[in-house]
């Protein structure tokens, strides 16, 4: 079920869900920048607490956020092992892991609390300066938001294909690397075929329902800016300034 829920919008009436999509996407990028640039444990800890508070505010179960991180445990352990062997234990290692965890928390929160249409509006807003150069930004934002929409489909198809292969005698656990690489080819072909089929039928349905990309018309969606939106943005900018100052010191 995680595979079916990961990246999928979970509807709630929380303040995080009701944020203006333009403010939300700016703050999301600010969160990523904050998590990425700071190399101090204290700041990463503050960020972790901050993200946990945001998750609490979003009214979405923490379990949904924890599971993807837990699934990455071997990757994180691998990084730790390489670092410890080559450079020995250092605080840098802890900071790196915290960075990964914080970025994952932030991006999962954005994906599960934002509708696909809102993601599209947000991306379109971010790319809007490129309109001066006659770049079709609406096409890009539509592509990106649809790619995100297809994440759960990809996971679902992957799960189904691996289960079919298990029943037909594939043993993942006891295969060597060469065999694993071969198994990957058995998975990728049906995976891509099925996703293309689904994307194709989705585009047909959208066309039949009168959708035309780039058609100039007034959007039926209108998002106002409320006090909470501005406060949310100001808080993020302030936080980023503090972190930048901390980095420069």
């Amino acid at each position: 079920m995680l595979n079916k829920t990961f990246g999928r919008y979970i509807g709630k009436d929380s303040k995080i869900h009701l944020l203006n999509p333009k403010i939300k996407i700016i703050c999301f990028f600010l969160q990523i920048v904050m998590a990425w640039i700071s190399n101090q444990i204290e700041i990463q800890l503050v960020l972790l607490v901050f993200f946990l508070l945001l998750i609490l505010q979003s009214e979405i179960s923490f379990f949904l956020f924890w599971k993807p991180i837990w699934k990455m445990k071997y990757l994180l352990l691998g990084i730790c092992f390489i670092e410890i062997v080559t450079k020995g234990f250092s605080t840098f290692l802890v900071v790196m892991i915290m960075k990964v965890v914080n970025i994952m928390l932030s991006s999962t929160l954005y994906l599960v609390s934002t509708k696909q249409k809102e993601i599209m509006i947000g991306i379109d807003f971010l790319l809007s300066p490129l309109n001066i150069f006659s770049i079709p930004t609406d096409h890009f934002s539509f592509l990106i938001s649809n790619s995100i929409l297809f994440l759960p489909t990809l996971f679902y198809e992957f799960d189904k294909t691996t289960k079919t292969l298990t029943c037909r005698g594939i043993d993942y656990e006891h295969s060597n690397w060469k065999e694993k690489f071969q198994i990957l080819s058995f998975i990728i072909f049906p995976l891509i075929t099925n996703v293309i089929k689904k994307a194709d039928s989705m585009s047909d349905i959208m066309e039949l329902q009168g959708f035309q990309l780039g058609e100039k018309r007034t959007s039926y969606l209108y998002y106002s800016f409320y006090l909470f939106d501005w406060l949310y943005l100001i808080y993020h900018i302030g936080f980023l300034i503090v972190i930048i100052k901390g980095v420069m010191l």
């Binding site: 829920t5 979970i10 179960s61």
Partner: peptide
């Protein structure tokens, strides 16, 4: 059950 505590 698929997963406890998640909304679905």
């Amino acid at each position: 059950d698929y997963q406890k505590d998640i909304p679905i």
